[in-house]
């Protein structure tokens, strides 16, 4: 029945060949980085480098994790984890509360608040870097986790997402809670929050990746190498001037930098796709 447009025989093989070619092209940079992270520096600086892995895997990764170039990569991984988790949890927490207020209460200033939040959708941190930097500096939050986290949770995507979702929750539930004399926060904890589990998880996946992959902001405010995040720390591992970069360690660090978010995408694929569609549409 469905045989009319699907290809068979040669056509089917060509389709697979095209897709496999695409997958290989996408994979190639990662493969090369992996190979580079398992060989010695002399093997790389005398091109062409080998295209199959060497035997220095443990040595290179241990050197990266334990000593790194300016800072042990283990330290940068920890900084990235704190930042990414802080952004994800922080944004979800404040957005759940304010979305609950907007949807389930009528209070003075509600419309104004709604529009103020709406405006934040329009301005990524890249656009207001200089004044935001000044604010953070004045609070003494340079080289600190709050300084890394707070400016990036000041946006409303999550609030809108939860608002949309709360609007679809049947009125009967709130009605029943009110008749039972349940206080608003009881309703929030016992009914609304459990119902939002999937939305929260999907958003968490997206926000974790967003936070982990930040570059410009950590670059500006972490001048102390021990506060560097891993994504911005890689560039700091390149020597200035004419020295040759320590490519095996840099490539090991690059792979470590992409591992957590890539694992999140692969292992939580369903939530990830749902989160993408939710946040963009």
């Amino acid at each position: 029945m469905s045989g009319m447009v699907e290809k068979r025989g040669v056509g089917l093989w060509l389709t697979h060949a095209g897709l496999i070619l695409g997958v290989l092209v996408i994979f190639f940079p990662i493969w090369l980085a992996f190979v580079a992270s398992t060989v010695t520096q002399p093997e790389i600086v005398r091109p062409p480098m080998p295209l199959l892995p060497g035997d220095q895997f443990f040595e290179n990764y241990r050197e990266a994790l334990v000593s790194g170039v300016n800072t042990p990569v283990a330290r940068m991984l920890a900084n990235s984890a704190v930042m990414a988790l802080g952004i994800a949890f922080g944004k979800i927490a404040i957005s759940l509360l304010s979305a609950f207020a907007i949807v389930y209460f009528r209070f003075p200033g509600r419309q104004l608040f709604f529009w103020l939040i709406f405006l934040t959708l329009m301005l990524p941190v890249e656009v207001r870097i200089v004044p935001t930097y000044e604010v953070v500096a004045r609070f003494g939050m340079l080289n600190s986790y709050p300084g890394l986290i707070f400016p990036l949770i000041a946006s409303a995507t999550a609030t809108f997402l939860f608002r949309q979702f709360f609007m679809t929750v049947p009125d009967e539930l709130a009605e029943a809670a009110r008749v039972d004399g349940a206080r608003p926060m009881r309703f929030f904890w016992d009914i609304l929050l459990p119902m939002s589990r999937t939305n929260i998880a999907a958003l968490f996946v997206i926000l974790f990746i967003y936070g982990w992959n930040q570059y410009l902001w950590p670059l500006l405010i972490t001048t102390d190498p021990s506060m560097n995040t891993i994504v911005m720390g890689i560039k700091q591992m390149f020597p200035s001037g004419d020295d040759v970069a320590d490519w095996p360690v840099i490539m090991a660090t690059s792979l470590l930098a992409m591992l957590p978010p890539v694992l999140v995408v692969i292992l939580m694929q369903k939530l990830f796709i749902r989160g993408l569609v939710d946040t963009e549409k």
């Binding site: 207020a101 907007i102 389930y104 608003p184 926060m185």
Partner: peptide, 22 residues
Amino acid sequence: KRVTFKGWLLPLLLVAPQLAVT
């Protein structure tokens, strides 16, 4: 929403964190 809760202090407290950060 047709069904809402009463009160104005609680909702203001709920939006306060986001308002402050923003």
